[in-house]
Design a protein around this nucleic acid. Sequence first.
DNA 1: GCCGTTTTCGGCCCGACTGTTTTCAGTCG
Length: 582
Amino acid sequence: METSNSKIAKLLRNVAASYSIKKTGNIFQVRAYDNAADSIEHSTVEMKDLWEEGRLNEVPGLGETIRGYLDELFTKGKVSHFEEVQKDIPKIIFDLLDIPGIGPKTACKLSDLGINSLDDLKKQIKSGELVKKDFSAKIAQSIMAGLRQTTSKTGRMLLPYAFAQAEKILEYIKRSPSVKDAHFLGSLRRMVATIGDLDFSACSKFPKDVIEHFIKMPGVVRVVDKGESMATVMLQSGLHLDLLIGSPESYGALLQHFTGSKNHNIHLRTYALSKNLSLSEDGVKHTKTGKVVPTKTEEEFYKLLKMDIPAPEIREDGGEIEAGLAHKLPNLVETKDIKGELHTHSNYPFLHPSHGPGVNSMNDIVKKAISLRYSFIGISDHPPGHGAVSREKMIEEVKKRTKVVQSLKKSTKDVRILNGLEIDILPDGTLSVPDEALSTLDYVIAGIHSGHRGEKDIITKRLISALNNPHVDIISHPTNRLLNERESSDADWDEVFKVAVKNNKLLEINAFPNRLDLRDDLVREALKYGVKFIIDTDAHQVSQMDNMRFGVSVARRGWAEKKDIVNSWDWKKFSEWFTIKP
DNA sequence: GCCGTTTTCGGCCCGACTGTTTTCAGTCG
């Protein structure tokens, strides 16, 4: 079977439902499977990748047993225990469970009534037959709504795309005079690479007014849910928006609660209980007296637990609670720390009659860098592919471009312009451009651009071979994953990190929307070896240089500090690293 | 089945919303 995270999550949910239906095992066992499913579904990393890297034990909620089953799944393509558990249960039940609002109990009841397909269910609701069979009209109605939702459901959105939409919505929410403040919640606030629904909070004394304002937002086609202090609406695209409203007195607790992650909250609450405190969106309750202390801000909330506040990006139950209690949280890098980047593509015409893969001119990139107040900007076009030209022609072409960039350097004093290229690491580990040409550059970015699906040994050798070339400074988008499209390449990352550190090479954190590569979890892993990073946008048009913040969010999720990110350093230190002459 | 700032055994986050429940079950996040 397919082994995407969503497929695995569904499989585990089916097992949970099967246990629950058969009443074998206890409620906590069922919950354990559901927790594992949630954890996997919301992971930024494919379980298959982690499994290959031997790091499944880092996923909260996966214990020895479930890890064993996943091992079987990845090795044999199926899990015999899971098949056994699901054996006597009609398949329709698992289909019904995909419908929002239908859990194991309702699914069983529908199956017992003879429903044998989703089409059948639709028909029976429309004909009124279902209502005759002991289902209230209201429940039938909500099942119908759930069915529509399922069919219009889309996959998870890329973070930068979700962010752009969410910013407009947040602005609209804040426009209500009853709203004192508003924030993103959930995976959006934690800056996870892919986003499901968009969640927002509002701070207000008049929740009714805020809800009225919210459901009237242009683009809303349906109010899915409405309570006293919350509402869910659907946009034309099928996208769901949640709004949670908290009073100013307890807004901090609400923000904390709905920012999650779920695993962070479960861990935090379990810890709190051991200190006789019960946490909820209302505040911190002393279990002995029953007294609830509301908290205006998140800082107050965490302070009541005697811990430092972890940034939303690292609230994934990856040790941040322990670090917060020990007052040892990292001082994460910030977007405002970034002083330039080295991976941008211009329309420089390299052999092409009209222009290269970038949309804008080198000059446009320089102007954009100045507007971003960068102190340096590197332009790194793709030279012609290996084999497209002779060795001599390649050298000549690169030298020709170097002259162009050198004259551009003299055109401005507002930003330092650096001359680079992004070249290919070929299947045998050699580079697509001869050293003689590379020596005319300020820096070299090397990346694997074909054969990503190669064997682990091959990919590792290619990366290490590039890291051993004295001209190479940076490995671009190291895992080559494309979100929603292509899994990470399989490589011995520990080995890659060791060699990168030994040779003083940088790994890139690529901020391109569907890359966000090196992945956040591997950034954290690499930091244990002392790897240094550069965050680049890989912009193919100047507007994409604004994606820097998403690369920074990957670094932050990987617990990176300013000292770990070379393009947050001042020019002196940065140029020394690259041995660039002023 | 998971997990450890009381614990490797014995607990397991918390509350909102919905329906038709007159005190609670099912589902969700």
